[in-house]
Write a protein that binds this DNA or RNA. Structure first.
Lengths: 217, 217
DNA sequence: CTACATTAAATTGGATACAGAAAAGTGAAT
DNA sequence: ATTCACTTTTCTGTATCCAATTTAATGTAG
């Protein structure tokens, strides 16, 4: 067990990371009840760090806590989905604009490599790779708060994506748009890159919206 | 005492609200240590809900927690200041764009009233009124997550503003820009409103930047 | 049989207790 | 006087315990 190597004062983070993965990857369905004691048992701790972890995830929007009624995996909602994509557009547009002047060739190629990987990846890994691709392009902007914000939005978005990505040829379109975005970055063409990114996010939002509005709410 | 009317399960929120006010309003200086037991005593609770409150404020960026070393009021930093204003620009631009089509005359006049109030307010109240003015204009967009995000950014920004607002005639300029923004909203002129808001936020950022870079970091 | 009240079980929120880590203090050796 | 080792104190993180609240279950009256 890695519990022996666990430093004191970081259990909440460990539990939060585990739950985050389970929620984002779909292992825990939306609306599922999160009983403190069960989680505590499965992580070999008391309920106390679990509560801390749940608070963390609540702040990220992945968990919903009702006073005296416990926590559930945040439900999926078409309206919130739209909101997340609008916010992604604004935040990622800003990040890319600030990043482009700082982008090195090395970083662009790292994004390219992730892009290649994503092309041959299973649907399970797509979400994480998609996020990694975007984050790689934004990192040079060196805005920790902005990047954390975007990362959180991507986690939220992944949950919705997972619902639809199966039956959708959206993935192929996404690949093409990523390719175009990479090209624009290579040319350091800020205007083009921003336009492509904006369209990319809006497209994804719209494409998924139809599929989702049937499945949820 | 209002503690008798206090519902179970909401003490953390109450403590967080109190601390938030003390931090944003400047009662607690940046870098000040936040001892759990002292806070617990002053709010008449145990350390437990205090810890929850601190985690909340950490997620908002007002508090910084170091494992096994306690929490401090988040330090002020010129770089973060810039980042916050960039994010405000992106987020508030989006909110205003979505709001304008939904704005009723009644809501515009409510914002106008707050604007009037702010004109005769003391420096202590300026931050809160400034925030209220902006939030009133954004509320009609009906995007709870986006509004919460903006609210948090405004709280962060207020701390920096307070440092500079004293000696600055920025307040007068801000009033003028608010007036112009209101007029554009009354005309439902989206393009003008967005341009004014963008400039307003950028101006504020730049105006404060000079003053602050001397005082901090 | 249904609706309602009452009771019992499950579960959370908060308080207390304890263990471990960091910080402050003390003293000896150089 | 300064530095290093050691002790003491302070404070945080976690576990355990208790009270309050919600949810389920049971029984009773209509």
């Amino acid at each position: 067990m890695d519990q022996a190597t666990e430093k004191r004062g970081e259990q909440a983070e460990r539990i939060a990371a585990g739950l985050r993965w389970e929620i984002v990857s779909g292992g825990l369905a939306a609306g599922a009840a999160l009983r403190q004691e069960k989680i505590a048992d499965s992580y070999g701790t008391s309920r106390m760090p679990v509560r801390d972890a749940l608070r963390l995830l609540e702040a990220e929007g992945l968990v919903q806590m009702m006073p005296n009624r416990g926590a559930i995996v945040a439900p999926l909602d078409a309206g919130e989905f739209q909101e997340i994509y609008e916010m992604r557009g604004a935040a990622e547009g800003l990040a890319l604009k600030l990043s482009i002047p700082e982008l090195t060739n090395r970083q662009i190629e790292r994004a390219g490599a992730i892009h290649e990987q994503a092309e041959h990846a299973s649907i399970k890994e797509f979400g994480a790779l998609n996020k990694a691709f975007h984050m790689t392009l934004y990192e040079p902007c060196a805005r920790p708060r902005l990047l954390a914000h975007i990362s959180g939005l991507n986690d939220l978005a992944d949950r919705y994506m997972r619902l639809a990505a199966l039956q959708l040829d959206y993935v192929r379109q996404s690949h093409a748009e990523h390719q175009a975005l990479l090209d624009a970055c290579r040319r350091r063409d800020e205007a083009a890159a921003l336009a492509i990114l904006s369209a990319h996010i809006a497209d994804a939002g719209q494409a998924l919206h139809k599929l989702l509005s049937a499945k949820i709410a």
